[in-house]
């Protein structure tokens, strides 16, 4: 097993608009999604869909990665891209 470079592109497999305040620093509503990476359709990430209105999110939409730096970790989030 070894890491491999990927394009950062993917498809939104499913999502939910979360309305429940679970955790400090996460103000609802926000979108939680499962993204399938472009290179391998059985590899998925649970993530957030950002930089778009929650109501505009659709299953099957193409997305790309954007990283957020938190403490010592770079968190992969995804944003919509045009088809």
């Amino acid at each position: 097993m070894a890491p491999a470079v990927v394009s950062g592109r993917g498809t939104l497999h499913s999502f939910t608009i979360n309305h429940q305040p679970w955790m400090p620093g996460f103000d609802p509503p926000y979108v939680i999604g499962i993204v399938t990476i472009a290179e391998q359709d059985d590899v998925r990430l649970t993530t957030n869909i950002v930089n778009c209105e929650p109501d505009a999110v659709r299953v099957g939409m193409p997305v790309r990665v954007t990283f957020e730096h938190r403490e010592d970790v770079w968190i992969p989030l995804f944003e919509p891209v045009a088809d």
Partner: peptide, 11 residues
């Protein structure tokens, strides 16, 4: 899941 504010089986 926690880094994405998704701690619950509800999500």
């Amino acid at each position: 899941t926690l880094p994405y504010g998704a701690p619950s089986a509800a999500n």
